[in-house]
């Protein structure tokens, strides 16, 4: 926290880069928005309780392959937790935040 505060008073190099006219690619900005939407859909659906990937796909309307990609990524980054295995599929839930 203290480190973040220290940095906030320093002029960011990313700001200087933007001032030089370098901008993010519009398709990346769009992709990032889409990603946030998908992650929210998945997390909202898991608020009701643990689900398998086909169950998440069915609840959100997303393709199961897309759900797998996001769920496995979110597990890797500690945002979702794998649970019990039922009939060949694991169930996933929102990770409990530490502290």
């Amino acid at each position: 926290m203290a480190e973040e505060k220290k940095n906030s008073v320093k002029e960011l190099t990313v700001k200087k880069l933007r001032e030089r006219g370098v901008k993010p690619r519009p398709e990346v900005v769009e992709m990032s928005k889409e990603q946030r939407k998908i992650i929210k859909q998945i997390k909202d659906c898991l608020k009701e309780g643990a689900k398998t990937i086909p169950e998440i796909a069915s609840a959100t309307g997303l393709r199961p392959g897309v759900v797998t990609w996001y769920v496995m990524t979110l597990v890797k980054y500690g945002e979702l937790s794998p649970g019990e295995e039922v009939d060949g599929y694991y169930k996933y839930s929102l990770a409990k935040k530490e502290g």
Partner: peptide
């Protein structure tokens, strides 16, 4: 989180 799940839907 475990080895050998399929990418299509996480099935073993």
């Amino acid at each position: 989180h475990t080895v050998c799940l399929r990418p299509g839907d996480g099935k073993i």
